[in-house]
Nucleic acid binder design. Structure first.
Lengths: 222, 222
DNA sequence: GTCTATATGTAGATAGAC
DNA sequence: GTCTATCTACATATAGAC
């Protein structure tokens, strides 16, 4: 039976096995990010991970389970940092809407632009999950809880605002963040011939846009 | 030879043939929008169009050409309306940044939310083109010219603004618009249990967010 | 133009030797 | 755990009769 479905206790998997599994997950993350779920093939993943095809199924299970595994692998790290930052804001007490939005956006943003190709790939995978209703359940499990918390805290602080509009502003912000991770080529194409652009500048630009957009939604709702 | 590659003059294709071709393009638009490029199959498209598989290739060519055909089919209508609105603003003379952004966003937005399932599907296809570098050339041909015009006009009117940041704001706005077309389920999920939400409200929310975001980028750049 | 039939490739997944 | 070999399904695309 494939290990992915095994529930019973296994002891001491070999170092080699552990390393292979890591390589497979990393390779799958890159390939899914580059090719999309349907465009990615188990063969591509195996080749990238330098293992045999059969081992991808052995360690990762069926293709869709492998994808879910990839999404889940980094989701809790993100959620945890988001929650911790929100909790710190609550303790401090004097946060504003921009602080809360940054608390949600920064954890993924800084990782995706930290020159770690795996995290940049993960951002693209989040974009795939967000754009395709087929992964609705995955988004509900891994991302919606903290996002709902943000919406709820904003609505408590700005009781005149329409919750649907606040939720809209958060979704628009996240989609803008993901666009920055997946479509920097488009921004460069529209900027003119030789605009230089560093990651910090792009992030500042994004947060400026989203903070102002959210403020606009909150204020005009009052 | 397949008609899609034929350059010579054809005269009087039958009514039936024309109708079949239309059905194929419409069906392809829906299927590509629902399944993505790789997830869509010629079989699905043929079935949806109620024609034989071979006819899809005959009228649409290879799969990638069919996709490009779908993108091109409605692109000029969009570009034309965008240009006309921009020209009217120029003649009038007293436009602001929000007017220019609306001129770019509204043509697709109103069509996608006009209860025409084909245009809603087309919006999803634009999202696919925008998110995947593989369709870079398609975006460059069909969407970038008018988008560049918008960026350029904004930069002329607000000369202190960084063109890269203005281009960023436009890309963020478009990604937010496409998120509204593709992920209204996410907004509803985050709004709370039973928030009602009509299309006009959602569009107002989007434009509010994007106008405020763009204004934020333009002002803080000064 | 449209049909049936088929050519050719590749996908995901597993069986069973090692 | 990892390998080779293979099964089955389905993909795109075209040939050729009608």
């Amino acid at each position: 039976m494939a290990q992915h479905a095994v529930k019973e206790r296994k002891r001491a998997p070999s170092q080699r096995s552990i390393a292979a599994r890591e390589r497979i997950l990393d390779a799958a993350e890159l390939v899914f990010a580059e090719q999309g779920f349907d465009g990615a093939s188990i063969r591509d993943i195996a080749e990238r991970a330098q293992v045999q095809k059969a081992n991808v199924n052995f360690h990762g299970g069926p293709k869709d389970e492998l994808f879910e595994r990839i999404v889940a692998r980094r989701a809790s790290e993100l959620s945890q940092e988001r929650r911790e930052t929100i909790n710190r804001l609550e303790e401090r007490g004097d946060w504003d809407a921009a602080d809360l939005m940054s608390a949600f956006m920064r954890p993924l943003l800084t990782r995706a632009f930290s020159n770690d190709p795996q995290w940049l790939a993960y951002a693209r995978i989040v974009a795939i999950v967000s754009a395709d209703a087929r992964w609705h359940a995955l988004a509900t499990t891994h991302f919606d809880p903290v996002a709902s918390l943000v919406v709820q805290k904003l609505c408590t602080k700005y009781p005149e605002a329409d919750p649907a509009n606040v939720a809209g502003a958060l979704v628009f912000s996240v989609s803008s963040m993901l666009a920055l991770c997946t479509s920097e080529w488009r921004i460069r194409a529209l900027s003119g011939p030789d605009q230089k652009r560093d990651a910090e500048g792009a992030i500042r630009n994004l947060l400026q846009f989203c903070h102002a957009g959210l403020a606009g939604v909150l204020n005009t709702s009052v």
